[in-house]
Every structure is written in structure tokens, then in C-alpha cells.
Simulated scan of single mutants.
Amino acid sequence: MRKSPQWVFGAGGLFTLLVIWEVVGRTVFADSRAVPPPTAILGQLFADGFGFYWPNVETTLREAGMGWLWGNAIAIVLAVVMVQVPLVEKALMQLALASYCLPVIAIGPVLAVLFSDDTPKVILAALSVIFTTLVGALVGLRSADRTSLDLVRAYGGGSWTQLWRVRLRASLPSLFAGLRIAAPAAMLGAIIGEYLGAESGLGVAMINSQQSLAVERTWGIALVATALSGAAYGLTALVGRLLTPWAPRTVR
């Protein structure tokens, strides 16, 4: 008997969840409206329309995208330095770990005082991705085939030649594993930054809808943010598969 594709089970599970959600929203939470049914959320989402969502989505995507780029660039540079200069690895790893452990909700107001415009949100998004990508890049750079490294050295190549010829290619599967996790993390960092102070963005829109008791709109904004994070994760995973066809699917 032929097995059904995995997406069939996923779609079935999602449909079942939506049906249960609809029933619970119209019965258990009918009076409080704390959990509106999906049909009401979608109705409000379409009523708000493109004009409401796009300016906020564009702002959040810009902040998250810039943070993702800067954070990942810093992480990759740190990983290369750690591999090439092992003497500084411990200090740099402790610094990266400290940045990962910093409570975003605590440093956000400080960044808002120090910087203006989108800078605080970009920094928070970058801090949200550095450690994850650093670990993936570091594992990947060190997974290079020892025989290939020895061959480069036998032909007179140094550590930088090994990096360029062998390590960078070997690091791609693990690097993309970190990058795809970093994508939704950057979205979260940007939205938290907007919560702490901004003029526009999904975080600001959510605060305004909460204050006006627009429950369906609040849920709609949350679903849009979730969809964007999922799309960013999926797009990064797709690019990783296209660029690393030799890697096992579990790694990509």
C-alpha cells in the first residue's frame, strides 16, 4: 500500500485544529471573546486590508532583515576568527554567549535611549541571531574532511587556503541550519523592539489593537507575524537545499 505524503497528514492536522478552534471560539469563549474563531479573525483581517497591514509589515520586515544580515555577518566573521585563531576562541564564545543571554526586554529601553529611528530594533534582531548562527557556522567549519585539509597543506597551502578551498564549502549545510532558525528569531527581536518603542510595525499595531480591545485584529496581527516568520524559515531552508544538494536532508 502506497504511503501518503507527509504534507497530507500536516494539512489534515491543521484542518482539524482549525475546526476545533472554530467550535471552541464559538462556544467556550463566546462571551469573553478572548479566543475568537478563525472565521472572525479572517473576516477582520480582510476588513483591515492591505492598506493597514502593508506599512506595518514593511517596517517589521526591514528591521528584521537588516538585523538578520548584520547578526549573521558578525556570527560568520566570529566563527572564521575562532577557527583561524584558536587562542581567542574562548573569549569570543563567552562574548557571544553573553549577548545571547541578555534579556531583550531589559536592554531594549537602553538602546532606545542611545539610538534613534530603526537602530534599536535592528540591534535587537541582530542580537537574537548571532549565537545560533555562530554555533552552526563553527560546527560546519570544523566538519571539513581531514584528508582534504591535509591535501591542501601537502601542496603548500596554509590555514587560509584550507578555509577558502575546503572549510567554507563544508560549512554550508550546518550554516544554513543556523540561518533558517535565525530568520524567525530576527522577526521576534524586531517585534519586541517595536513593543518597547516605535512609530510603526507589527508590534506597534498589536499594542494599539490591544489598547482598543480589538481582539480579532490582535489575533490577526499575531497570525500575520507567525506566517511571516514561517515564510522566512521556509525560504531560508529552500535556499539551503538548492545550494547544498550534497548534504543529507536532516542537516539542510
Rank of each mutant, 00 (worst) to 15 (best):
residue 30 A to P: 04
residue 16 T to S: 11
residue 37 P to V: 03
residue 27 T to A: 09
residue 47 A to M: 10
residue 28 V to N: 00
residue 14 L to N: 00
residue 40 A to D: 07
residue 58 E to T: 12
residue 39 T to V: 10
residue 48 D to H: 07
residue 49 G to R: 02
residue 40 A to F: 02
residue 48 D to S: 14
residue 32 S to E: 14
residue 23 V to S: 03
residue 35 V to N: 09
residue 28 V to W: 15
residue 44 Q to P: 08
residue 50 F to S: 12
residue 14 L to Q: 01
residue 15 F to P: 00
residue 31 D to H: 08
residue 50 F to R: 14
residue 57 V to K: 10
residue 52 F to W: 06
residue 18 L to S: 09
residue 28 V to K: 07
residue 52 F to M: 10
residue 49 G to F: 02
residue 34 A to N: 13
residue 24 V to N: 02
residue 51 G to L: 13
residue 27 T to G: 08
residue 15 F to M: 10
residue 54 W to A: 14
residue 18 L to D: 09
residue 39 T to W: 07
residue 31 D to R: 14
residue 45 L to V: 12
residue 27 T to Y: 08
residue 32 S to L: 09
residue 13 G to K: 07
residue 22 E to Q: 15
residue 44 Q to H: 12
residue 17 L to N: 08
residue 46 F to W: 15
residue 50 F to P: 00
residue 18 L to R: 08
residue 56 N to F: 03
residue 58 E to Q: 15
residue 47 A to G: 06
residue 23 V to T: 10
residue 58 E to H: 11
residue 25 G to Y: 06
residue 52 F to I: 07
residue 22 E to H: 14
residue 44 Q to L: 14
residue 26 R to N: 12
residue 27 T to V: 13
residue 55 P to V: 09
residue 37 P to G: 04
residue 39 T to P: 00
residue 41 I to K: 00
residue 34 A to P: 01
residue 30 A to W: 04
